[in-house]
């Protein structure tokens, strides 16, 4: 697929600095990723802050949207963690909105998908795990590690079970970050590849190729719809798994 920058499916993930910035010997340039992070921040803030600024009892459109998102996330969270989980509400809400806005804005043609950078999803996953560990240990002390000791297991089996539980716990951030990253990356590559087919077929000049060119176009249209679903679903999955992991910190007992 090396037919020039326009069709290279990887090109869309290229990071290029907009403003060079070096601090403490680190390359902290303001890149296109940073730009889209700021756009995500602006969009979410616009919906949630500007949308709720009227404080009307009968909501307008934007306020309805803000309230809908609020209640959706609150329901998801209380469904997993119960009422006491509401102390994590701002955290889960910010995560959900950041990921959702990144995924959705990534669907705009010519935009950049922040969540297709593994370092971003990994940072989120590590952040979630850090919150789980810190809150769990601060709140429950050593009792938190009872998470790794399933009850009702015969003594000789216990070391293996603890090992398995520990490995499963440590693989959580990996699966959490890779799931989101992989979905966003693969979806965008697939879209680009099918879009690229159309261009290649039309550019080849052969009559038969003109005839079959609409097929990948149709597929690209279908894939776009699918990608919107995936964009929402992955944000939801990310949020609900965060809730599940945070629930372990709230209630470490099995």
């Amino acid at each position: 697929m090396a037919a020039g920058g326009g069709i290279d499916p990887i090109h869309q993930f290229q990071i290029h600095p907009i403003v060079e910035l070096k601090l403490f010997g680190l390359n902290l340039s303001f890149t296109n990723t940073s730009l889209w992070m700021v756009i995500v921040l602006a969009v979410v803030s616009a919906i949630m802050i500007y949308g709720s600024s009227q404080r009307s009892v009968v909501p307008g459109r934007l306020q309805s949207l803000a309230e809908m998102i609020y209640e959706f996330v609150a329901q998801t969270l209380t469904g997993v963690m119960g009422r006491e989980g509401m102390k994590f509400f701002p955290f889960v809400f910010s995560l959900f909105m950041f990921v959702l806005a990144s995924n959705m804005l990534g669907m705009l043609p010519g935009s950049f998908t922040v969540t297709s950078q593994i370092i971003v999803t990994a940072a989120f996953a590590v952040l979630v795990m850090a919150v789980v560990l810190v809150y769990g240990i601060v709140k429950h002390g050593t009792h938190f590690f009872g998470l790794f000791v399933p009850s009702g297991v015969p003594g000789w089996l216990l070391p293996f079970m603890v090992l398995i539980e520990a490995v499963s716990f440590m693989s959580r951030p990996v699966s959490l970050s890779l799931r989101l990253f992989g979905n966003m990356l693969a979806g965008h590559i697939a879209l680009k590849v099918f879009g690229g087919f159309v261009v290649v077929l039309l550019g080849s000049g052969a009559a038969l190729n003109y005839a079959i060119a609409p097929l990948p176009l149709l597929l690209a249209v279908a894939l776009t719809a699918l990608e919107f679903l995936v964009a929402f679903l992955q944000a939801y999955v990310f949020a609900i798994l965060t809730c599940v992991y945070l629930n372990d910190a709230l209630h470490p007992g099995h």
Partner: peptide, 24 residues
Amino acid sequence: HFASNLFWLAITFAALYWLMSTIA
């Protein structure tokens, strides 16, 4: 760009968290 991504992610996400938890 890992460092710059993380740096800007930290800034934007912290800002988002702050805005959401204190205002929105």
